[in-house]
Each structure stands twice: as C-alpha cells, then as structure tokens.
C-alpha cells in the first residue's frame, strides 16, 4: 500500500515538472504559434500526470479524477486549435524564423480571386 502511494506522489512530481517546462517554453519561444505548441502539450500531460498520481494516492477518488482527465484531454487541444485559428485570422505576426505558410498563401489566393471575378459583390 505504501509503495503505490509513493509511486503516485512521484508521478505527481513529474507532472508538475512538465508544467514548469511548459511555462518556461511560454517565456522563451519566439512567436504565438510556437508558444501554443509548448503550452498546450506540456499543460495537457502535466495536468494528466498530476491528477493520475493523486488518484493512486486516494484510490477512492479515481472516478472523478478519470472524468477530469478525459475532460482535459478532449478540451485542451480544441481550445488551442480555435485560438490559433483566430490568431491567424487577425494576422498575428509570425516569427522571422518561419519558412513556409501555406494557410496564408491560401487566404491571399482566395481574396485575389474574389477581387478578379466579381468586384461588385462587395458593394
């Protein structure tokens, strides 16, 4: 019984270390998209490990913690995805290191096409 609790505490510790690394990524990364990369992944796994470790310490809490884990696993990627989408839509500046931007190419293509074919629709 004692060993499983210590394993749970160590898993919780590992989760909090990942959370610190994710925040360090938020501080160090050069632009919004790379910050989302660091933030989302680290906070998802960090929180999951923290909750799972606590579940090993209190085995009777496991049900609620599993609900929380599923919830974080489903919603966190969606919120980061929708945030990146709106950020790209309002043209948040990307870092100078960025090499290719296919989404921007598509958007400029679409607007120029619209301007060529039916310019009167806008009026």
């Amino acid at each position: 019984m004692e060993t499983i609790e210590i394993i749970g505490a160590l898993i919780t510790l590992a989760g909090s270390i990942f959370l610190v690394l994710g925040s360090l990524g938020l501080v160090r990364m050069p632009d919004l998209y790379t910050r989302i990369q660091a933030g989302t992944k680290a906070s998802t796994l960090g929180t999951i490990l923290t909750l799972f470790g606590l579940g090993l310490i209190h085995l009777d809490w496991m049900g609620k913690l599993i609900i929380l884990i599923l919830f974080v696993l489903l919603t966190n990627p969606i919120s980061s995805h929708i945030l990146a989408r709106s950020a790209h839509y309002i043209k948040t500046p990307v870092s100078k290191l960025t090499k290719v931007d296919k989404l921007k190419d598509k958007e400029t293509e679409k607007t120029s096409e619209a301007n060529h074919t039916n310019p009167e629709d806008e009026l």
Binding site: G25, P30, Y33, Q37, A38, A42
Partner: peptide, 26 residues
C-alpha cells in the same frame, strides 16, 4: 506519442540555442 512530444518540447526549451524552425504546411 503524447509522452514523446513532451520530452521533445522539454529538449527544445532547455537547450540554450532554442532550435525552432517553424512553418505551416498542408
């Protein structure tokens, strides 16, 4: 893959040169 991705992020964040080479592909 989730665990691997976290070690990948940790490696990038902790290395002093910050090896990022970002881009959006389809």
């Amino acid at each position: 893959e989730l665990i691997k991705s976290n070690f990948d992020i940790a490696r990038r964040v902790l290395s002093p040169k910050l090896p990022v080479n970002p881009g959006i592909i389809e």
